[in-house]
Amino acid sequence: MPETIYNLACGALLVCCGMCLYRIGLGPTAPDRAVAIDILGIVVVCFTALLSLRTGLSYYLNIGIAWAILSFVGTIALAKHLEGKGFDE
C-alpha cells in the first residue's frame, strides 16, 4: 500500500481522536465524557487495523480485539457508575 494513503488515513484518524479529546475536555456533563471515551476506544481499534495493514503482522488485530473488549467493559462500568449516583446533584 502506498505510503501516502497510510499517512492520510492516520492523519484523519488523529483528527477523530482530537475531536474525542475536545469532548472529553469540555464536557459539559459526565455522560458526555463517558461517550467520548467509548468512541476513542473504537477509534484506537481502527489504528490497530491500519498498523496490521502497514506491517502485515496479524497480531496487531489481536490487540484490536482485546482493546475493543476491554473498552466495552470499561464503558459498562462507567455507565453503571453514572446510574448509581448522579454527578450533578
Partner: peptide, 24 residues
C-alpha cells in the same frame, strides 16, 4: 473483530444512555 464491535458497541451505547438518564 467486526463481530465483537457490532455486538458490543450498541450495547455500550444503550448502557450509557440509561446511565445518563439516571444521572439526571
Amino acid at each position: 473483530c467486526i463481530v465483537f464491535i457490532v455486538i458490543t458497541s450498541p450495547t455500550a451505547a444503550h448502557a450509557l444512555a440509561r446511565g445518563a438518564h439516571a444521572s439526571g
